[in-house]
Amino acid sequence: MFRTIRISRIISRLLISLVLMVVAAGMAFAQDRRQNTPGEFDFYVLSLSWSPSFCEQASERGNGGRSGAQCGGRPFSFVVHGLWPQYERGFPEYCQRSAEWLDRNIMTSMLDLMPAPGLIFNEWKKHGTCSGLGARAYFETIRKARAAVKIPEEFLQLSEPKSIAPDELEAAFIKVNPGMSSSAVSVTCDSRRLSEVRICLSKDLQFRSCEEIDRRACRRDQVLMPPIRGG
């Protein structure tokens, strides 16, 4: 009897494992058939990180010394985290595993927008290789995407901590960016602070809706924007 029960449990576990494998395979297939094919994607997400939040988090983790120029004396507000190729569902990443090198001149040319060499290199490996562009063209596209988005004036020299509703922050961006809708921008946060504003752009860098990105937005009533350093 006990042997029969044991065999039944083993069979049940095997069936559960098989079901989970089938579900996982189905989800991967449903994500996109073009998975990780360079240049084959639907739109971009421009991710703008609120630098003061990043620096506070780095300090709390004891990594403040590793944050380099971003958390020094320069008054950074929103900085570019990345420009990410996306599918309508899911996203590609690390599309060229051999992309181990990035020209130093390209890296240094981006430090005004992305003030961390390690970030620039990682963004190229993880996301840039999926754009179908060469490194120089990819980072030129990042610069164009950033130029296409206007930062609301009230956030450029924030000297005091500010508590703000995510919807209010989105509305501020929509107000100063004609053509941007609420379905094209979303806000992310940690347990209490603003993390990023993410803006969806077509391949030709026009604002466009992106429901999946919007579903992953911050659900807090209010988020804290720490003040800009060195301002």
Score class of each variant (00 low, 15 high):
residue 49 S to M: 13
residue 211 E to V: 12
residue 197 V to H: 02
residue 86 Q to A: 00
residue 165 A to Q: 11
residue 173 F to V: 07
residue 43 F to E: 05
residue 199 I to A: 02
residue 70 Q to L: 10
residue 199 I to H: 02
residue 127 H to K: 05
residue 79 V to L: 02
residue 171 A to T: 09
residue 42 D to G: 01
residue 106 I to H: 07
residue 19 V to C: 13
residue 114 M to G: 02
residue 138 Y to V: 04
residue 74 R to W: 10
residue 225 M to S: 04
residue 90 G to T: 00
residue 204 D to I: 03
residue 72 G to D: 05
residue 91 F to H: 09
residue 160 E to H: 14
residue 6 R to Q: 13
residue 163 S to C: 05
residue 35 Q to N: 13
residue 33 R to L: 12
residue 119 L to I: 09
residue 164 I to W: 09
residue 216 R to S: 12
residue 171 A to E: 15
residue 25 A to T: 09
residue 12 S to G: 08
residue 148 A to Y: 01
residue 101 W to V: 12
residue 21 M to W: 09
residue 145 A to D: 04
residue 86 Q to M: 03
residue 68 G to N: 00
residue 117 P to Q: 08
residue 48 L to N: 08
residue 81 H to C: 00
residue 116 A to K: 04
residue 44 Y to N: 01
residue 150 K to F: 07
residue 143 R to C: 02
residue 129 T to W: 01
residue 80 V to G: 00
residue 161 P to D: 10
residue 196 E to M: 04
residue 157 Q to A: 13
residue 156 L to S: 12
residue 221 D to H: 10
residue 53 S to R: 11
residue 219 R to E: 12
residue 185 V to S: 06
residue 10 I to A: 11
residue 63 N to L: 14
residue 225 M to G: 04
residue 7 I to E: 14
residue 51 S to M: 15
residue 35 Q to T: 13
residue 166 P to V: 05
residue 87 Y to C: 00
residue 11 I to N: 00
residue 48 L to W: 06
residue 48 L to G: 05
residue 22 V to C: 09
residue 177 N to T: 03
residue 184 A to P: 08
residue 28 A to V: 11
residue 207 F to W: 03
residue 118 G to A: 09
residue 126 K to E: 03
residue 220 R to E: 10
residue 87 Y to G: 00
residue 102 L to H: 04
residue 102 L to W: 01
residue 56 E to I: 10
residue 211 E to H: 10
residue 201 L to W: 03
residue 122 N to L: 09
residue 84 W to F: 00
residue 48 L to V: 07
residue 46 L to Y: 08
residue 169 L to H: 04
residue 221 D to N: 14
residue 204 D to V: 07
residue 122 N to H: 15
residue 50 W to P: 10
residue 162 K to G: 04
residue 44 Y to H: 03
residue 34 R to K: 12
residue 49 S to L: 14
residue 223 V to W: 07
residue 147 A to H: 11
residue 43 F to N: 11
residue 204 D to K: 10
residue 138 Y to R: 01
residue 136 R to C: 01
residue 163 S to R: 15
residue 59 S to D: 14
residue 71 C to M: 07
residue 146 R to I: 01
residue 30 A to M: 12
residue 100 E to G: 12
residue 32 D to C: 11
residue 123 E to N: 05
residue 9 R to P: 00
residue 178 P to I: 10
residue 222 Q to K: 14
residue 226 P to R: 08
residue 127 H to L: 02
residue 119 L to S: 05
residue 226 P to K: 08
residue 10 I to D: 01
residue 131 S to W: 05
residue 174 I to M: 13
residue 126 K to P: 02
residue 103 D to W: 01
residue 19 V to R: 03
residue 167 D to K: 13
residue 135 A to W: 01
residue 113 L to V: 05
residue 57 Q to Y: 14
residue 51 S to G: 09
residue 18 L to Q: 06
residue 194 L to M: 09
residue 133 L to R: 14
residue 116 A to L: 11
residue 127 H to C: 06
residue 27 M to G: 10
residue 202 S to F: 06
residue 190 D to A: 09
residue 217 A to R: 15
residue 112 D to S: 14
residue 36 N to C: 03
residue 19 V to T: 12
